[in-house]
Computed example of a mutant assay.
Amino acid sequence: MTGEVAVLGAGMHPWGKWGRGFVEYGVAAARAALADAGLEWRDIGSVVGADTVRGGYPGYVSGATFAKALGWQGARVTSVYAACASGAQAVDTARAQIMSGLADVVLVVGADAAPKGFFRPAGGERSDDPDWLRFRVLGATNPTYFGLYARRRMAVHGDTPQDFAQVKVKNAAMGALNPNARYRAPVSAEEVAASPVVADPLRLLDICATSDGGAALVLSSMDFARRHGAARPVRIRAVSTVTPRFPNTVLDLPDIATDSWAAVAPPDGTFRTSIARAAYEEAGIGPEDLSLAEVYDLSTALELQWYEDLGLCGEGEGAKLLREGATSLGGRIPVNASGGLASFGEAVPAQAIAQVCELTWQLREQAGDRQIAGARVGITANQGLFGHGSSVVAVR
């Protein structure tokens, strides 16, 4: 059995602050993906929803929520939650169902209606949740974390606020070409530098917004795709949902009188590098094979870190890669041709799905003015809190 599944359809509800419920955005994206696939809702054998904890009980059972909104028709239903990696987990679940023969064609949907301002912990007191503790005990909102990470890059690698600003300039230029993006105007480095400081050294335009939006995919077996007339569809070749590897210790008690600990060597790389490595290994490719990458640019500094974690350049060389123009349209390896979170903002359970939508359109050569010439292989990357990896490799 092949490890690939076909992407028959991709659809989105444009990002913004629309003031409506997440179900409306998800249903609109689902219908767009079905239309793109040339299928009817009744053709779908399974629905996998990426959960949103901000949607109340319907958000926790998003698979059933979307199935009900589209009209009960007997499909299997699954709901998954993995914070920012929820969309990749949903794609992986759909792929597993297809490869196991449980379903020929699966609809994957994620949508969110985000609050204004910083994300806050949802679901009450959760003292066993590191995210809750970070907010409540340390007072470290997401921008605080982003600022600390940016300071680390400045101290260790010599990055500058001007480098960070150029990430925003690049992504805003590409987002201006994307009809689904929330922010569709070019931004200058001077405008970034003039925006208010939020978490030193990062300014308002260095940090992504919170947004409403939805994204959906129709995935199928390769046999179904051929029967449906899709002779050469975009294929998902790998999905990485790995967890971190911490140094382990092994208790050694040779006798009752002595205790000793044998430390296991730490992993060879960071959690984010392991996410990419697992995707590359499963897909049988390397960074040199990529045509494009879509990464989770929660802040401009974090995008530079992803360059290194994906192996697009060596450690500490992210800013150099940016300055050379390699990650811009027309460069060696465009990153965030969609405009990224800089242009969309964060609609958490939809974003990893939206990344695969962008790969699909690029690999089909349907990306319009932001099209990357000759795109054949793409990768997505982000991570969810509490140790959720998220990376998808798609090929044409």
Rank of each mutant, 00 (worst) to 15 (best):
S211R: 13
V156M: 11
V197I: 09
Y149K: 03
G175Q: 06
T141H: 05
R152D: 14
L217V: 10
R184Q: 05
N180K: 10
S188F: 03
S195E: 04
D163T: 00
D212F: 15
L148R: 02
V192H: 00
D200Y: 13
V187K: 07
Y149M: 12
E190K: 09
R203D: 02
D212G: 08
L138T: 00
V167N: 09
T160A: 07
A189E: 13
C208G: 10
N180M: 14
E191C: 04
E191Q: 11
R182L: 06
A150D: 01
F146V: 00
A215E: 10
L205C: 01
A155P: 06
A150F: 01
N171G: 06
K170H: 08
I207T: 11
L204G: 10
G214A: 09
R153H: 13
H157P: 09
S211M: 11
K170D: 06
Y145E: 03
L202E: 05
L202K: 15
V156A: 11
A140K: 02
A155H: 13
I207D: 06
A172R: 04
N180H: 14
T160P: 07
A165R: 12
A172D: 14
V192F: 01
L138N: 06
A176M: 00
V187N: 11
F164C: 04
D212V: 05
P196D: 03
M174N: 13
F164S: 14
V218F: 15
S188R: 03
S188V: 01
C208N: 15
L217Q: 07
D163M: 00
R184S: 05
Y145Q: 14
R134Q: 06
N178V: 12
P186A: 14
Q166P: 11
E191K: 08
M154H: 02
L202T: 08
C208Y: 12
F146I: 02
P201K: 03
V137T: 03
N171E: 14
A185R: 14
K168N: 10
G158A: 08
V187G: 08
R182D: 02
F164R: 09
L148Q: 05
A176S: 13
G158P: 03
L138D: 01
M154I: 12
V218Y: 10
P201H: 02
A173M: 06
Y183N: 00
G158K: 05
A181D: 06
D163K: 00
A216T: 00
E191L: 05
T144K: 13
L202F: 12
P196Q: 06
F146S: 02
R152M: 05
D200R: 15
F135T: 03
L217E: 05
P186S: 09
Y183W: 13
Q166T: 04
F164M: 06
L217T: 04
L138G: 02
M154F: 11
G175P: 04
T141C: 09
G147N: 14
V198C: 05
A172P: 10
G214R: 13
P201L: 01
A216K: 01
L217H: 03
A215G: 15
P143H: 12
S195Y: 05
Y149R: 07
N142S: 15
A165P: 12
V169Y: 05
S195C: 07
D212Q: 14
G213H: 14
A181H: 09
D212A: 13
